[in-house]
Nucleic acid binder design. Structure first.
Lengths: 257, 257
DNA sequence: CGTTCCCTTGAGTAGTTTCAATACTTGTGG
DNA sequence: CCACAAGTATTGAAACTACTCAAGGGAACG
């Protein structure tokens, strides 16, 4: 049996999986794997990179979850979640300073690479450069979906959408299980992702539970029928560029050469 | 007197103005200008590029405004606005298909360049490549701010924020006037940007008008005291990467070499 | 076995939507 | 020039959604 991507590339095997990883040659996968110069583990709620902080390295999320968040005096706003395989602050390569914090959600394992190394790749392998660019734009596409989520959905639908997104992204990298997934999320996190108070989030979760769509208990999300939850949360995975109308897998020759 | 950027580069003179345009050499500015192979004008509400549509060119907005929008059966969701100097669908270079529509807001003038040309630049000028990447990430940063806008603000503050953002972005490219700006926006557009109904948006605008913070009348936005409006709309322009804690202008040598 | 963090519930208030109706503006053709 | 149509803006009232303040319950960890 073929070894899994993760076995062959223990640090970056999940990068772009389910999306354009198929468009990467073995050499390119090896190049990406070799970018990681240092591996580190963090406890929960640790800040990997803070807003406004100058930085000269980027972080690959190997295991666990992370959040993009902005903290003000009185509140925290979550603007994104990251799952294994995500180059969580690759955009810092071009931006130099982030407008938000990157914080761990539960224990995580990450790999660091320097911007120096990335710059080399940029100049020597235009194809990989483009894939890295693509991966940062994937985050932007997710941001747009979140804006729409806020614009159109009520609290219970928003969480449903969040559940669907995380699940689907885990599916892409081969970590999505059947029936239930476990995360370090608490209700306050979900509230901060959906722009509601924790109290209201609790009521939204109760509603989902009562209606049998999804059950959230201390980080474990149980969903009897994902299709139904996706319908309820108006979730169409196309924006994740893995499949559907926006997917590129069938047209790898187009543009990514 | 020195000719303005726009006089010297009539098609792309506003590109990255107020942000990293200062980091571009004269040759680079000329290169970008030469990318534009075709200039076109459009009437209002025309679709430049539709969701899911394969594409092999990108569009520079020269004059006027554009919207990033997603249309469903019953509603339209606006996820971004573009002003002159914006490479409105540069990200289609890496994504190939957009997850949203790009539509004109009022009459516009645009310039087209092929992905073929962009690819050349990518491979021959890593510095420019990086600036182009930067410009797409700027959009992502704006998306994140919009998510926060939705998460934390009430309708009147959200419009206030939209007004501040558009104004500041016009400032950057030298089109921001004193006291008032004129746009082709209607109340329905503002509602679609803020995730409210047009009716509620009307009440929000009335509130702004009554409180003396801002007056919106048929596209013309009048603001007696921008600082005050910015405070009300919790608007901190840092996320636009032109100045403030995230600005790079004083540190051009860092990273962008 | 108690502390701490996380979750739950109730009641009153604030913000938003919906439905319904009414004006104002602008452009067009008679 | 007026009449009309289409698009845009405004207002009122009732229903819904979410927030705040306040109190209590449960699980995990030492």
């Amino acid at each position: 049996m073929m070894k899994s991507e993760r076995d062959r590339f223990p640090l970056t095997g999940h990068f772009l999986m389910g999306r354009l990883r198929d468009a990467m040659s073995e050499e390119e996968k090896a190049t990406v794997e070799s970018l990681i110069e240092e591996v580190a583990e963090f406890e929960t709620a640790e800040e990997i990179l803070g807003r406004g902080q100058l930085c000269d390295r980027s972080t690959m999320l190997i295991d666990g979850f992370m959040l993009r968040a902005v903290n003000t005096q009185d509140r925290r706003y979550i603007v994104g979640v990251q799952v294994p395989g995500d180059f969580v602050d690759l955009h810092a390569f071009a931006l130099k300073r982030l407008d938000h914090d990157i914080v761990t959600l539960g224990r995580v394992k990450v790999g660091f690479t320097t911007h120096e190394r990335i710059k080399d790749v940029m100049q020597t392998n235009p194809h990989l450069a483009r894939l890295m660019w693509f991966s940062t734009l994937l985050d932007a596409a997710i941001h747009r979906e979140w804006i729409m989520k806020m614009e159109q959905l009520r609290a219970p639908q928003r969480v449903a959408h969040v559940f669907c997104e995380i699940w689907k992204r885990l599916d892409f990298v081969g970590l999505g299980e059947e029936g239930k997934i476990t995360t370090p999320l608490i209700q306050q996190d979900l509230a901060d992702m959906c722009g509601t108070t924790a109290i209201h989030m609790n009521r939204a979760l109760t509603e989902l539970r009562d209606s049998g769509l999804a059950d959230f208990r201390r980080g474990t999300i149980t969903v009897p029928d994902r299709k139904q939850l996706e319908k309820y949360g108006v979730f169409d995975p196309a924006y994740l560029y893995g499949e559907g109308v926006l997917g590129l897998r069938g047209e790898l020759s187009i543009g990514m050469d």
